[in-house]
Design a protein around this nucleic acid. Structure first.
Lengths: 266, 266
DNA sequence: TTGAGAAAAACTCAACTTGAGAATAACGGG
DNA sequence: CCCGTTATTCTCAAGTTGAGTTTTTCTCAA
């Protein structure tokens, strides 16, 4: 998928680059901010940290940090933006081996940070049952916070207010997750390697905030080629209450659902 | 939709900001690159310019340029990223009053530009029948180039090779346009204010590169609430050949199509 | 051992949507 | 006025969906 690197330079190019001074340029910083979403006990949550240093000390914010442009005392340069996103997140919580990371959007309004012009690349990360976070540098708290405590993208009206424009980034992350559930097999990113159809339905219900018709959901999932594969095993049921033991499935190869599973419907 | 600006600063914040030196930071530059798509005589095209200065002099590239972080000799700062995108594009071609601009993705691999670490925010712009472009600063040619000449996102294999990772940006732009046609009313962004159902179908056929069933497309468009509105007028048919005069429609209020118009189908 | 309750999975059927093609309507030009 | 052409409407079989019911396979407690 890559474009094969940069083309070879002629002599003019080399002379030009030798005389190039990056410091002559306008000061702009690039950061990454990660909206890590997971489902804990049926409640969809996002990871937030509390800032212990200015600017906006004491406000809750997404895990984030400056992209390392070059090797330096802080550590080696980030080869690409996703590397920076995983690095800043790994300072807050242990990352599982299976995770879904995708770029969300880039935020660059002139006044979004009081220090200087800062352009921030937002990332969406989905993973099953992430553990309790730990407090990292520059923060004095880290928590999984239910989406419901953050208002519904209607600005800073309700619940816990967030630093900078992070409420907007969370709203974009939630909307992206909701809409990708419709036409991709992304829901499996919230689940462990083997899961039941009911667990899959509960992901849809938690993320969309709706109830779905049990039997029709079952039929639709099994009729969609490549969404799930039967493992041939049954879940062993430790808990209370009776009930037939459900089959276990794993994520299938398909990334895109044809036809999609629409939200409007039930 | 905005988050209400930054919160008020306490005295600690103010002291911190007074002592803050932006120049102390690692040198990273931020650019915007615009993939402007339009349909010319039934052929979907993208606007390309030829670079007349290093790096990669002589290669074709998307219109782009550095985001202006602060007011300076070059001009005032760009208030936000979309402003920068429109500014760099307006140096190449006259912009119509109605256009669709959306952010695509941000590209930040360490080696994507030989000068320094450059993070580029890609934009997708759609507009109906844009005029011939003009040659701007730093370029010696500007052309509307059919997508078909650029290969199909399979790297630099076929056709005209592009500078930096611009082949990838164009491929992302084309894929975004193709998939948004499915579930939004975006197709009308390629058309003038009043258009016929046939013209709308030809947009789908040009962008998707498929043929659609005439009568079924007609039925589906009219059955989708808010996609198009009848103007009550008929197109005046000057040209050759006979045929019933088609009705003229304008874009309706709906942004999202429920249910979507799927590509897989005919 | 057995029956009640529970959860999963399969089945039923009417209503709706889609794909494919045919029919009808409205035009321009000989 | 007849013909080719394009737009628009109609028909119908096949497929999909929404809603509810039935069957299967469990646990638990009497």
């Amino acid at each position: 998928m890559e474009t094969g690197g940069t083309p070879p330079h002629d002599d003019g190019e080399r002379r030009f680059l030798d005389g190039y001074d990056p410091r002559a340029f306008a000061p702009t910083a690039v950061t990454v901010d990660v909206a890590a979403l997971t489902i804990r006990a049926g409640t969809p949550c996002v990871l937030l940290t509390r800032r212990s240093a200015p600017p906006q000390r004491g406000w809750w914010a997404l895990p984030g940090g400056f992209v390392r442009a070059v090797d330096g005392p802080e550590g080696p340069a980030d080869p690409d933006l996703p590397d920076a996103a995983l690095r800043v997140l790994s300072e807050k919580t242990a990352l599982p081996s299976e995770l879904h990371l995708e770029q969300l959007r880039t935020y660059g309004a002139r006044d979004r940070d009081p220090r200087m012009r800062i352009v921030s690349v937002g990332y969406l990360l989905l993973a099953p049952g992430l553990p309790e976070p730990h407090v990292g540098r520059g923060t004095d708290a880290a928590e999984w916070v239910p989406w419901s405590e953050l208002g519904h993208g209607d600005g800073a009206r309700s619940g816990r207010p967030l630093a900078f424009d992070h409420a907007r980034i969370v709203a974009d992350a939630v909307e992206r997750a909701r809409s990708k559930l419709e036409y991709t097999a992304l829901a499996t990113a919230f689940l462990p390697p083997a899961f039941t159809i009911t667990a899959l339905r509960e992901v849809y219900e938690a993320v969309w905030g709706t109830r779905l018709h049990n039997a029709n959901f079952h039929r639709k999932i099994l009729a969609t080629p490549g969404f799930v594969e039967d493992t041939g095993e049954l879940a062993d049921r430790g808990g209370s209450g009776g009930g037939r033991r459900p089959r276990l499935y794993r994520a299938g190869g398909a990334a895109v659902l044809h036809p999609p599973l629409l939200r409007g419907a039930q």
